[in-house]
Design a protein around this nucleic acid. Structure first.
Lengths: 338, 338
DNA sequence: GCCGGCACTCCCGTCCGGTGAGTGCCAGAG
DNA sequence: CTCTGGCACTCACCGGACGGGAGTGCCGGC
């Protein structure tokens, strides 16, 4: 077990390194933080921390740099989430409040996060799987062609075109629309399959085929769109990574372009608790020198989607976590009000 | 006026420089392209080309590099658009054909363009201003709350929530919906304001307020959404820019994040003709060392939106232009079929 | 357990000199 | 007037040498 002072030393190393981006030495440490001991003592502590794998030297006779393990300890034990100032919180709220629709909310959230953290922001659209159906609309486009429009309580709209086995009448469509909505409006997506199960049987045999294909498309939309869309922003902040970056930045940009990767990344994050994945803790190859800070957000007490930031392992964790948490909270509020 | 050979020399310089990314000298030129003259002669030509501002030396006693003006001449006079191979065209088509909805079409187009050109791709969503209304739907959400859903012929769906001055009945809503659609369905967006102008007068005085607010929202949606959304991809290709790139890449990434900038960029492009903006021809500060190749695409004979790529001025213009043109053509076809 | 001192390591910036690619110019030939 | 070979010149680039400096590890004393 590490002594109290050694933990302080580790904390100081992380803070300094995050600030300066340069390996930190024993002398600088004693000066900048008022540890009440001499550099020589700190050196002993650093040697111990290095033995335990919390810090490392880029090369002999250089200062120390935290390892992934060191950051992990720092985040778990040594750092508190840094709350935002009142002014910042007010700015966030008012910026998000002026959003006009869902796209705008998500877009503003991304920009906000990117700006606050000066890192890459990733925001998932509110998830369908936890939301409820507000309305299902059916529109005749052609005699045997129907457009299905699904509207959710989070304001999302999905549409599909359906080719029906037989021509359909306006009256029948109105009937189907009414019966469908009577069953599913206000219900959770997960409930829908059960609720519509027996619907075809209540129709005449000749119409059953059409009802079947409409229902099939509806269920398909629910499933497909549960895989979420997301929006990212702030990629320009990647240029602050370091000097060596063709090599560093490229795989990150590539990873960020793959929605699947990002979704998995956010997916691994806890719902209400903030999750921090540091360096190699990230499964994806290209993100081994980045950290991901993510958290769920939602309109009610339950999370409907996630958001977070991606940045270098050498990031200001308390500040980043504070910003992520605050933004998640306010987005949730805004969504609830809509 | 430049002699024929000098133009050939310029062409050779552009081609070599694009290939190697290194300043090209007189000796290398005579070897790689079979100009039937000696290096000394080429040197004279190069001196002339430099006097005219078509090429420049990074420093004394280095090879030559094309200037923006040089690329301009190359694109205008010396290069032909390079058509894609049959196999490539087939691949494009089949890749785009398997798209399921509009988002998917745009998404696939972006990936395709980015991959073919190995540059950053930008695709504008089909524009509302040129499209026609397929259907307007009105849904009662609450006694005095209506959701307006606008469906376009390109498959786009926009929705807005409207707070009405008075509670509304289902019958009235159905009536309004029917009359509204009778007037605007199938019509161009630009025609809609005129077509609905007299609609309120045909309703009872008590309902007129509601009709007014619905119409106001509809018109607002048309205008607002004419400012387009767009999708970008392939930013990882920016890492191929050069070695010096914190400085080069950063402003580009920043510019790419600003939709407004991109829209203006594409907006400046011609509709059916391909437009190439080289280096400082781009108005935006951050894009002075990039070139933009853009062209309109559309489902019929008329362009509904634009797409293009952003890359270093030192790019393979014939190849890029070929890819952009081909993709635009096929996207148009796919949209027409939907 | 803490501290001062000391020798050692190694990165980094700087300063050479050599090399080579490329140029400009000139004088001569067609 | 145009093309060509020759020649001197200019720099960027590379590699090695060198010194300064920051940082370490260890030792012996308090």
């Amino acid at each position: 077990m590490l002594s109290e002072r050694r933990l302080q030393v580790l904390r100081a190393i992380v803070q300094d390194y995050v600030g300066t981006q340069e390996p930190v030495g024993s002398k600088a440490l004693t000066e900048r933080h008022n540890l009440q001991v001499s550099p020589a003592t700190v050196r002993n502590d650093m040697a111990a921390l290095e033995d335990e794998g919390y810090i490392a030297q880029p090369h002999t006779s250089a200062g120390r740099v935290p390892t992934d393990k060191g950051y992990r300890l720092f985040v778990d034990k040594l750092a508190d989430v840094k709350p935002l100032s009142r002014a910042e919180r007010r700015a966030i709220r008012s910026f998000l409040e002026s959003a006009v629709d869902l796209d705008d909310v998500v877009g503003r959230t991304v920009r906000l996060l990117a700006q606050l953290t000066r890192q890459v922001a990733v925001v998932q659209y509110p998830s369908l799987s936890r939301s409820t159906v507000r309305h299902v609309e059916l529109l005749a486009l052609a005699p045997a062609r129907v457009m299905l429009v699904l509207i959710t309580d989070t304001g999302r709209v999905e549409q599909r075109v359906i080719d029906c086995p037989a021509p359909i009448g306006e009256a029948f469509l109105a009937d189907l629309r009414a019966r469908l909505n009577a069953r599913v409006a206000g219900e959770r997506f997960t409930e829908v399959p059960r609720l519509v199960q027996e619907l075809p049987e209540s129709f005449d045999a000749e119409d059953r085929g059409t009802v079947q294909s409409v229902l099939a498309t509806l269920l398909e939309t629910l499933v497909e769109e549960t895989e979420e869309r997301l929006m990212i922003g702030g990629t320009a902040n990647l240029t602050r990574f370091g000097q060596d970056f063709p090599l560093t930045i490229r795989p990150v940009l590539e990873a960020l372009e793959e929605q699947v990767v990002l979704l998995k990344l956010l997916g691994e994050a806890g719902n209400s608790e903030m999750t921090v994945r540091i360096g190699r803790e990230n499964a994806h190859e290209g993100l081994t020198s980045t950290s991901v800070v993510a958290v769920g957000y939602g309109s009610g007490d339950e999370a409907v989607a996630k958001l977070g930031v991606v940045g270098p392992t050498r990031m200001d964790y308390p500040g980043t976590m504070g910003a992520v948490r605050a933004v998640a909270r306010y987005v949730g509020q805004i969504l609830a009000e809509k």
